[in-house]
Nucleic acid binder design. Structure first.
Lengths: 163, 163
DNA sequence: ATCAATAATTGACATTTTCAACGGTCCGTG
DNA sequence: CACGGACCGTTGAAAATGTCAATTATTGAT
């Protein structure tokens, strides 16, 4: 009881939280969902900043990346993979197609569906954008060893693609 | 040369990508930023669904959590920690205060600033909400061992709070 | 041949994000 | 002490995103 009271008293060892530093030790600061959200927010902001010089955002970059791979994804697959509403994919593809970076091809196997194909200029732009994105990622991962980088990716994959 | 051509040909070992499965092996599917974004999207959706029964979302839950800790954060600190615009914090606190879950106290040390304090009903609601959130998190982490859970949190912390 | 289900598209609506401006307060300097 | 620049919370508006229902064209099963 006496101990409990002492434990509940003002933190003695803790430095006075001048800024936001004190909040990191809070319950929320240990919550995985929160850490995920904050890490994502920072990463996304950095990525968008880096991609801006190529006229891209994380979203359009992602679509371009999947087109540049030769997976020939349909718009529905893009929507599901990127967790976007199909109507958002329409807008993204519209823009990329207007810039001649990708093309819609109606899927011969299912004429309802459009398959995305990258153009030469699209591939070239993607190559440059990928470099920028990669550079930024390296910066963000400065505090993480390459092994931990791989471990992190593996763990995130479990969360991103549940069974 | 012959080998290269074979390697570049249609994937033989790969199963025909019926759905979105094929995209996971793409360049983007290995990108850390993307995995982070997707993991966060799924986690956030699950959290919001679970918190809805308490009339909360991830945002309001976070604010309530920080108030329930006895950190007495100012709104500016909340904004910085949660990466929100100060005006968004105003709206969040407005709503929580209207529901009598938290109170604004002007900081005696700086009369410009408001410090957030939880009420008794706020603390009670948070306790219940936290249980829901925790249950959901356990579900999402089903495929992750407790050790890896801790490792993941540690790595995310590096990204979420650089230097 | 018909009919339910699905892909893409459009348009409307809600939510979230981002910014600029403003009153009140703090603090260092003259 | 008074001034001036910086900061906190607040408001309101504009831009960007997210969500949803309805429509057309096509598919696949019966």
């Amino acid at each position: 009881m006496g101990l409990a009271i002492i434990a509940a008293m003002s933190p003695i060892g803790k430095t006075q939280p001048t800024g936001t530093a004190g909040l990191r030790d809070s319950v929320l600061g240990r919550d995985l969902s929160f850490l995920l959200a904050r890490a994502n927010a920072l990463t996304l902001a950095a990525a968008n900043a880096a991609l801006a010089q190529h006229g891209l955002k994380a979203r359009s970059y992602s679509v371009l990346a999947l087109a540049a791979d030769d997976v020939r994804p349909t718009q529905r697959e893009l929507a599901e993979f990127l967790r976007l509403d199909p109507s958002q994919v329409v807008a993204l593809v519209d823009e990329l197609e207007k810039r001649q970076l990708v093309e819609r091809r109606t899927d011969p196997a299912d004429r309802r569906a459009n398959v995305l194909v990258v153009t030469d200029t699209g591939r070239a732009l993607f190559a440059r954008a990928q470099e920028s994105a990669h550079a930024v990622e390296l910066g963000l991962l400065a505090a993480v060893t390459p092994q931990d980088h791989e471990r992190l990716a593996e763990l995130l994959r479990l969360l991103a693609f549940p069974t």
